[in-house]
Amino acid sequence: MRRIVVHIALVAGAALALGGCGFADVRAPVPEFMRAKAPDPPAMGTPPDVKLLLRQKLDSVFVAASQPTEVRVSEPRPNLRGPGWTACVKAEVVSVTGQPLGTQTYRIEISDGAIADRQKVEGEDTCATESYELV
């Protein structure tokens, strides 16, 4: 009788131990065959019409008092920091006193078909290597 109880206990213990085995996280330090499959990246859909967005809401990128001219835009790219798209926008602008400031470049973030954010481009940004088209 004691032997049967020991066997049942061993089988139950082994079942519990093996029941805890499953697929590990994608980044777990286990062999590849034991890891879960990495999730597929979300589908991006079609790129937005950035030219149309800028024609409709240019004031969301450049202040109206700066009188932006020769507005140029790059092709939209998928945003690496989150959902949506990014593009670079250049324009010739003037100061409040009317003095030319030269070309100003901004990186815009497009989310849900609208311009969600803009940031002035620094020197090491990739906007310097983009090709631009007039809006």
Rank of each mutant, 00 (worst) to 15 (best):
P78D: 10
P78L: 09
P78N: 11
L80V: 04
R81D: 15
R81G: 08
R81H: 09
R81P: 01
G82F: 02
P83D: 15
G84D: 09
W85F: 11
W85S: 05
T86N: 05
T86Q: 05
A87R: 06
A87M: 03
V89C: 12
V89L: 07
V89D: 14
K90S: 13
A91R: 03
V93E: 10
V93Y: 08
V94D: 10
V94I: 14
V94R: 11
S95H: 00
V96F: 14
V96W: 06
G98H: 09
G98M: 03
G98N: 05
G98V: 05
G98T: 02
Q99N: 04
Q99K: 03
Q99M: 10
Q99V: 03
Q99L: 05
P100D: 07
P100R: 09
P100M: 04
P100Q: 11
P100Y: 11
L101D: 05
L101V: 10
G102S: 12
G102Y: 09
G102K: 13
T103L: 11
Q104G: 04
T105M: 06
T105D: 08
T105V: 13
T105A: 03
Y106M: 04
Y106G: 00
R107E: 06
R107W: 05
R107V: 02
E109N: 15
E109I: 04
E109S: 13
I110R: 13
I110T: 06
I110W: 10
I110D: 06
I110C: 07
S111K: 14
G113S: 09
G113P: 07
G113I: 01
A114L: 11
I115T: 03
I115K: 10
I115P: 00
I115N: 06
A116C: 00
A116Q: 11
D117Y: 15
D117R: 07
D117C: 04
R118I: 13
Q119W: 09
K120F: 08
K120M: 01
V121H: 12
G123E: 15
E124S: 05
E124Q: 09
E124Y: 12
D125A: 10
C127D: 08
C127R: 00
C127N: 07
A128W: 09
A128M: 08
A128C: 00
A128P: 02
T129L: 11
T129D: 10
T129C: 00
T129I: 11
E130D: 04
S131N: 07
S131W: 12
Y132H: 07
L134M: 08
L134N: 13
L134T: 12
